[in-house]
Simulated assay, not measured.
Amino acid sequence: MIYQTAESINDGRAFLKIDEFIKNNSVYVKIENMNPGGSIKIKTAIALVDAAEKNLDLKNKKHVIESSSGNLGIALSIICAARKYNFTCIVDKNTLPHTIKVMKAYGAEVIIIETPHPERGYLGARLDYIKKRLVSDNSLVWTNQYESSANREAHARLTARELLNEFPVIDYLFIAAGTTGTLMGCVQTVTEATPATKIIAVDTKGSVIFGTPSAPRYIPGMGASVLPPLFDSKNLFDMVQVSEKETVQTCRLFARRYGFLVGGSTGTVLTAIRDYSPKIPAGSVVVMISPDGGERYIDTIYSDEWCLQKGLLQLQSSTSRNTFSGAVVE
């Protein structure tokens, strides 16, 4: 059967070296969009389903329910289809229409939450919906990416080891924060293997993960309106937040300057590296993870109409060498 183990999907050797983005250093990007489903989340999905089969009687109940902003939903749709389970994904209005269509193509049921929780945002509303469904339907199995240790362990065992196999010495490692499974898994393994590595967690402004107030966010894939139970800042060297407007600028700049079409999380982390670069000594090994590609963001991050509607672009009459689609990168 396909997708039986996470080790079978990717040998983890896809890296891109980017020169002349920050002064005195190259940036090495671990590319995860060549995995099935187009993102790093296939590793998480396999681990979550494995754990549910082992601990939650999934093989008998045969119906998975999960909340997702996008990539995990696609990954779980794939795994559930391959293992002959029903899958219900709870998303919200910020989930990309393309993502919803892909999940449905794999046979998933998709429930869209239209109204955010007054204090805990769309994520809080999605989680409340799941909890109500679990009470009314005991055939459902919640994989719970937000609390399951399988989320963290998948990346401790796979993603972190893939990084270290390529770079035995990493000076600075930048990782996006969402459920923080990837982040915490890498922290677990990397800090044990190479204690000198400085791990920088990156989040988007408006997210509560780093203890800042919640605010509206429009780009799915990172950040949270509810503090992730997996998150622990103890072994982090630093934490950086980036505005969604900066993310849009960086994504578009990379497409035009480097021929690298990146997703929102990747653009956010690249922005953080650029802003942090004055603190990074020359000759450092700087590594980051790119969770997915930019193709599924064509109608959002790369759409002037959508970005203007969300207040993420400001058209200017002046131009510079970094001009794209009517907006200017400073």
Rank of each mutant, 00 (worst) to 15 (best):
T115K: 14
N94P: 08
Y106Q: 07
K310F: 08
G38P: 04
L48H: 01
A51L: 08
R157S: 09
I40V: 11
L183A: 02
L308I: 13
V187C: 11
Q309W: 12
L312H: 02
F231L: 01
T323H: 09
Q188P: 09
S265K: 01
A45F: 05
F15E: 06
P291W: 02
E305D: 12
G264W: 00
V269E: 08
R257D: 13
D238N: 15
E153G: 07
P213G: 12
A272V: 06
V27T: 04
F210C: 03
C307S: 14
F15L: 08
K61V: 04
G311Q: 04
S214T: 12
V248T: 02
S243L: 04
S148R: 02
A193Y: 12
I200Y: 01
V208E: 03
L96C: 00
K30V: 03
D11H: 14
R217H: 07
E53W: 06
L140E: 01
Q241S: 15
S233P: 13
T179C: 03
A224F: 13
L48P: 00
M222D: 00
I111L: 10
Q241E: 15
T115L: 06
D238G: 08
T99I: 05
T143G: 01
R321Y: 11
A193S: 15
T271V: 10
N235Y: 14
R296K: 15
A156V: 01
S139C: 09
T95M: 08
G223E: 07
S8T: 11
S8P: 04
S69E: 04
L134M: 13
L227W: 11
E53Q: 07
S148V: 01
E53F: 10
H98R: 14
A81V: 09
I22A: 11
A6N: 09
D57H: 10
Q188G: 05
E295Q: 12
L16M: 12
D304N: 12
V27D: 06
Y258M: 06
L127I: 15
L164K: 08
E246T: 11
R217Y: 09
K205A: 13
E147H: 07
I40W: 00
K84P: 05
D304H: 11
L48V: 00
R83W: 09
T247I: 14
W306K: 02
L164R: 09
P116Q: 05
P220N: 09
H63P: 02
V287G: 00
Y258W: 02
L72F: 07
D137E: 12
T44I: 03
H155V: 02
L315Y: 11
R296I: 15
P281T: 04
M184F: 02
T179R: 03
A272F: 09
L270G: 07
E305T: 12
A108P: 04
Q241K: 10
K23G: 10
R152C: 10
G267S: 12
C307T: 13
L163H: 14
G38D: 06
I79C: 08
L16Q: 12
F260W: 13
P168K: 06
Y302V: 07
L313N: 14
K310A: 11
V64S: 06
I100W: 03
L140W: 04
R256D: 13
I100V: 13
